[in-house]
Design a protein around this nucleic acid. Sequence first.
DNA 1: TTGTACGCGTTATCAG
DNA 2: CTGATAACGCGTACAA
Lengths: 361, 361
Amino acid sequence: MARPTINDVARAAGVSKGAVSFALHDRPGVAPATRERILKVAREMGWTPSARARALSVSKALAVGLVMARRPETLRADPFFPSFIAGLETVLSDRGYALLLQVVTDPDKARQSYRRLADEGRVDGVFVTDLLVDDERPALLAEIGLPAVIVGPGIENPYWPVVGADDAPGIVAAVEHLIALGHTRIAHVGGPSDVVHGVSRKQAWCSTLRAAGLPDSPFVETDFSAESGAAATRQLLDLVEPPTAVIYANDLMAMAGLSLAVSRGVDVPGQLSIVGFDDTEIAAHLQPALTSVRQDAIAWGAAAAIRLLELIDGTPPTPIELAPPALVVRASTGPVSTGAAHAAPAQRRRSTRERGRMEKQ
Amino acid sequence: MARPTINDVARAAGVSKGAVSFALHDRPGVAPATRERILKVAREMGWTPSARARALSVSKALAVGLVMARRPETLRADPFFPSFIAGLETVLSDRGYALLLQVVTDPDKARQSYRRLADEGRVDGVFVTDLLVDDERPALLAEIGLPAVIVGPGIENPYWPVVGADDAPGIVAAVEHLIALGHTRIAHVGGPSDVVHGVSRKQAWCSTLRAAGLPDSPFVETDFSAESGAAATRQLLDLVEPPTAVIYANDLMAMAGLSLAVSRGVDVPGQLSIVGFDDTEIAAHLQPALTSVRQDAIAWGAAAAIRLLELIDGTPPTPIELAPPALVVRASTGPVSTGAAHAAPAQRRRSTRERGRMEKQ
DNA sequence: TTGTACGCGTTATCAG
DNA sequence: CTGATAACGCGTACAA
């Protein structure tokens, strides 16, 4: 009982292939009665158009691609992709598009991937994530002629639309929150300087501090890994004048930093306030619960998909509103204390019970 | 400058389409000299076979599908998929297969997804993950006639091969490790009882305890979420006779449990030993560092892909060795102490410095 | 080696 | 206007 073809349906309905195709696409040229009959027969036979025949016929792949270029370690823990993909699906599946996924380990392989997807005609367009400051992919894709949408905080470029709320407001909110709590030495543990969302967060941090008239605070560059987050924290705590607050570029590093601080007997938030980024599921359940910045990855996915399909179809872009990231304040941030962070490790000033307070927002 | 077709190459090389096809597939029937010339021309023109034409021609999709059916929350934090997918790719891309991904929110939608992928002829086979104890998908796929490979600890079934090291040995190792440390009340915070890898872990825990002649220990069923992990821990600590060790079915819950214990002033591992599962990146950087069970998701991916392609091609299965999960012992597990876990919360018996010891393995 | 039918929808052309 | 016919897209495979 193989899948019926459009020919089977046509024969059963006593019409031609063309008539069936027209009927199913609500195209004029078929009498209402005939149309009904065709649709009924098609339904009864359980006919569904073959994506591959269609693809060949319309000269489209009816699929879009997502190439994730990451070191496996950073990918493992990234909370963004699953939600983002779920968001993509909400739009793609309705439109009959499939999502083709590739995971590669370095940017070089990513370029090969794009080339190959284009050469083989596997996809009609692709999403570009984790844009580098000096990223060659947009130009490459333009040269190949493969429509693309850049996802995330992106640098304006002559080639492709950028979809994704700027993450700067989230960092700005975090810095302002800390300033309101009395902090003046607010360090930033940021992502690699070659990644756009690494530098954009850093800039937001930096300019907000300056706007508040505060002196420069320490910055440590990392690769987004837990390891590097811990190392950065160690470095900061060892300063002669350690910061009283640290904003991390992701929750993973914030967690590592929090743990490191605790292991040194530094009270959080008594001696050190900590802010993460991503608002991962675990954030609210840490001890103390982690203040973090939340992004709506699902909405990003939906928006990116809409935009890419428009690009593919040549439809004019519809304006898409994306909510800016929101600061979720929890217990890991608090008023600046008089005691310095490098105080005697063994001592604790607040009972653990006291510290376990509830999420504020 | 559109993509050249096989006809363009044939014309340029002064041969027929068929000759080009033969030359490129290293099939006999083409003189060596001609073959060389054809290959040269094809290379110069930058010709690559069109996947869609090929797919229609060979009546195959040249793609396989992965449908992930999860509540978004549990998916978000799952460290398994990115690595697993990376593993798949290592095999698929070499064989010219693409991976088609779908993320759906409930099992019902998953079934629809499979149906649709099959109906539209989008894929030649699929991977089934997160098998339920009473899962309808294997039978459904058998009925549809869509080749499948079940990934993860799976119940033997009449339909499809199961790929993935049994996760029981990891749990067994964890229980034995705790027993060796003197624990006798070793609780388990397990996954949902309708998921195979939920019950398989539970059974391993249970039978290992019995084999050691220990009395039954408390068990709490969860949905793998941080929230439920924290709740389960609360429940366990509130017991009249709380456990001295807890094995969680994933790191996420273990982290939540660890945090909850800390917030109550329960010393880990002094009063309570904690074991996770997954060995996520953050595990080694927690305070205390988390003992956990590591699985090689990349190897699983590669193995699953190999097996699925064999199934599709009708090739006999090659035996695949998968390393069993390994217990990674860190600081969150220690010798059982005399003090009970429900001791006065505000007190701490060991200085924090003392607790910050190194990963053992 | 070449010529050509085939896979399966889509769409332009044309006769009724 | 209705609907049949045929060409098309692009590689594969088999008969000639």
